[in-house]
Design a protein around this nucleic acid. Structure first.
Lengths: 357, 357
DNA sequence: TACCGGAAGTGAAACCTTTCAAAAAGTCAG
DNA sequence: CTGACTTTTTGAAAGGTTTCACTTCCGGTA
């Protein structure tokens, strides 16, 4: 698959070692302390001196040695983030939010993906600690958070990402999944639907459990009998095929549903695909609501109603909290819970009223 | 939108400073040199001594100071990558490939997104240099690569990502976009199409220019008159709306096309959406081919034929090259060009033969 | 002229690790 | 018991920056 088309040319690596602050000082005819001041506290240096030093820096192509700086100053300008899966658009947007916020304070982000594996998670945390990061944002792969105690005791600030934290003891940033499920179901109920299908994943995944809770809550709030108005279908793979499979089960019901809530957009896509194949009109004969508001939800032939999470804001807020925790000594831990948003599109139209059983 | 639900709890930061190798040595009753050896060359240390030291390390919760290590040893285990846009799935997959390859050699990745802005690009490169990275993978925002000369002269290894490099002088990894365009068009020609629409973006974007070249090449190879068999439509925004807009123009032609190649999948999605709205059947009345093979291409109601790029492999190869360049002194620069792959799905069916003009 | 005070610049110590020459300890043959 | 090894441990130097107590340099005032 790969083809090397060219292979030639010798490495032309610069001969000498990297220039140090001492070389700059020598060329500029000042002491090392002065060069350091030009770099860090320019206001303390006379303009002409500063100019001389800056000139020396450019002619030599001097680049500050971050390790030495960090070793001496004892503080870095890096933050780590350990996310569950870097190729998940959710975390990509979160990462972007983190990065943007950090850039404002001239921090940089070291991003690591744990692939939901505890061993990688821990290895990365250790590497980040060694790197001397000011703090780490973690979206933990497991329920148990005990492994974070030691690093915290050592002074590494930690903020939980996409996971509500144990109150009082640490900072966390998450989105209210219960509310999201509630929004989706309440929307359908408001449209007149009285029998709703819910395509869910395994409830040992927190998100699935929470969203389910929200869906049931919405029905109860509308004084609908949950047992009769909600048909739950659980699939193991939360993708389009899983959705289509779930749909088949829902269509075989004696007492059919008129609307379907899916725990994510990929599953919703499968449901919509199946409906089209079966000639069921969306939204006239079946309303569909997804979750996540992924990129393609808006651009489908029948645009998909979905629940949007403030992913970018989540990242920004997490970074904000971490910077605060890392900087100020007397810090109050905060648990921030973002609210998801219902984005109504064509896939959920008003239900043509049928005589209610 | 955000609501703080809890805010309490005082920071319980460990009192003392971080434990150093000296503390470990003292507790274990050995010299610092021995502790260092346990950490770096355990085979040199007698088993009992090693055990004592390891015990001391765990009781103290010692974490090696990476800055000091790097300062002294002169070499880090970090690699930087500057990509155009971290929220683009293309780069996400590439990043994953990079990370996986680096992990094998116990390197970690510092990932930065330039947002296609030259200033951010340069700022990040500087920060990475200061961090003492062994090398940097760059997908440059601009044609000009002069700004990479200085860092390279200073000894920072650089590999171009998703951009064929100037031969001989540096390593690069890219995907053959000309070939991709060729594959798409050749596929349609093979199906019997003799008049093909091409929805493209501005040709100053390299990818657009290259893919266009490939499309034309395929037609010439089939001995079709390019002027008559190819209808090019250029849109500025390469998204679904752009695609739908381009479709409208194509449908108004006196001599209509029977197939459409789109320069990316999002545009293809717009085209398909417009076709469905207009009641044109895919693939019977119009074949559609996209480019990128994004996640949703396979799960649409009419799955989309597309061109797949070996993104993960691209990342792996880039990391491989960078590690090689950073390690071995007498290094031959390599330009790797990956070949894209045609993924045939339902959206491109055989063309029902009409009498050829 | 002598002295003062503030601004500018200096230079050595400290940060924590790795490295390496050399010392110490242990092993074995003679 | 000695000498010739090998294995293990030691201790101090080195790496580049920041920090900070000091010195130097000035213009201005008494």
């Amino acid at each position: 698959m790969a083809a090397t088309i060219q292979t030639a040319g010798r490495l032309a690596r610069a001969a000498g070692r990297r220039r140090s602050i001492r070389d700059v000082a020598e060329l500029a005819g000042v002491s090392v302390g002065t060069v350091s001041n030009v770099l860090n506290k320019p206001s303390l240096v006379a303009p002409e001196t500063r100019a001389k030093v800056e000139a020396a820096i450019t002619t030599l192509g001097f680049v500050r040695n971050g390790s030495a700086r960090q070793l001496r100053a004892g503080t870095s300008r890096t933050i780590g983030a350990i996310v569950l899966d870097i190729s998940n658009p959710f975390f990509t947007d979160v990462a972007r939010g983190i990065e943007d916020r950090l850039a404002e304070d001239d921090f940089i982000l070291i991003l690591a993906s744990s692939d939901e594996r505890v061993d990688k998670e821990r290895r990365y945390l250790r590497l980040l600690e060694e790197q001397g990061v000011q703090g780490v944002l973690v979206s933990p792969a497991e329920e148990d958070l005990g492994w974070l105690d030691q690093p915290r005791a050592r002074g590494t600030a930690i903020v939980l990402l996409d996971r509500p934290g144990p109150a009082e003891t640490m900072c966390s940033v998450a989105v209210d999944d219960v509310r999201g499920g509630e929004l989706a179901a309440a929307h359908l109920v408001a449209l007149g639907h009285r029998r709703i299908g819910f395509v869910n994943g395994p409830t040992k995944i927190r998100q699935c459990a929470d969203r389910r809770k929200g869906v049931r809550k919405a029905l109860r709030a509308a004084r609908l009998p949950v047992a009769r108005s909600l048909v739950e279908v659980t699939v193991n793979s939360l993708n389009a095929d899983g959705g289509e499979e779930a749909l088949e089960r829902l269509l075989q019901l004696a007492d059919p549903v008129t609307a379907i809530v899916c725990v994510n957009d990929l599953a919703a896509l499968g449901v919509m695909r199946g409906l089209r194949r079966g000639g069921v009109k969306v939204p006239d004969e079946m309303a569909v609501v997804g979750y996540d508001d992924v990129e393609f939800a808006a651009v489908l032939t029948t645009p998909l109603t979905s629940i949007r999470q403030p992913r970018y804001q989540l990242g920004r807020a997490a970074a904000e909290l971490l910077l605060a925790e890392a900087h100020s000594r007397g810090h109050q831990h905060e648990q921030i819970l973002f609210q998801p948003e219902l984005i109504v599109r064509e896939s959920s139209g008003p239900h043509q009223l049928v005589p209610m059983g």
